[in-house]
């Protein structure tokens, strides 16, 4: 009798078990990420002097850590190649991108346009990341939260933010 091997993967519509492609396996990706970050850290730390064990230079600890991180990355990668556990659920790239844009735009506009315009952009962009976008709700929410932010941060904590920056 042929021995059945336990294969992890997604079951296709025809009922066949499909082996998860390596690049969709969470451990493969995690391993690659650790290897990548460890590699960059090691390469960058080559510029800092290593010193000796008795007199550790600024490069000592980072290089040791980078090597350890790469080792853990290798182990994770190898295990991922064997087990092929897929990433759970879908990737939420769209909400992630919108939130990043919302936060970054806020930082950019804070000095250039003032707190209120920055917050308006933040609310409209991040609300877009949700499942439902109801214009009227977003307007009310933005207005209420702008007032609250002004009350807490500007009046309450006394932070020196201009609500609006008049260009010119």
């Amino acid at each position: 009798m042929p021995r059945l091997r336990r294969v992890r993967g997604t079951v296709s519509r025809t009922g066949l078990v499909m082996r998860t492609p390596a690049l969709q396996s969470k451990d493969v990706l995690a391993g690659l990420l650790f290897l990548f970050v460890g590699g960059i850290a090691f390469y960058t730390a080559l510029d800092y002097s290593f010193g000796t064990v008795a007199r550790m230079g600024p490069g000592f600890f980072p290089r040791v850590l980078a090597v350890v991180l790469m080792l853990f990355g290798l182990v994770t990668l190898a295990r991922g190649l064997v087990s092929r556990d897929p990433v759970h659920g879908r990737w939420g790239w769209a909400p992630l991108a919108l939130l990043v844009v919302a936060i970054t735009a806020f930082g950019y506009l804070m000095e250039r346009a003032g707190m209120i315009p920055a917050l308006v952009v933040l609310f409209v962009t991040s609300a877009w990341a949700g499942h439902e976008f109801r214009m009227r709700e977003v307007v009310v929410l933005t207005a209420v939260m702008c007032l609250m932010a002004t009350a807490v941060f500007v009046w309450g904590l006394g932070l020196p933010y201009r609500l609006f920056v008049v260009p010119g």
Partner: peptide, 30 residues
């Protein structure tokens, strides 16, 4: 939740900005 999460984002962004009054902290947070 659709009312909550934009407000959380606001607190996160403003809170980080308020530490050094620097947009760089906000970008790093993103």
């Amino acid at each position: 939740y659709r009312w909550l999460f934009p407000s959380i984002v606001m607190f996160c962004a403003l809170g980080n900005y308020s530490l050094n009054n620097s947009p760089v902290d906000v970008y790093l947070c993103a």
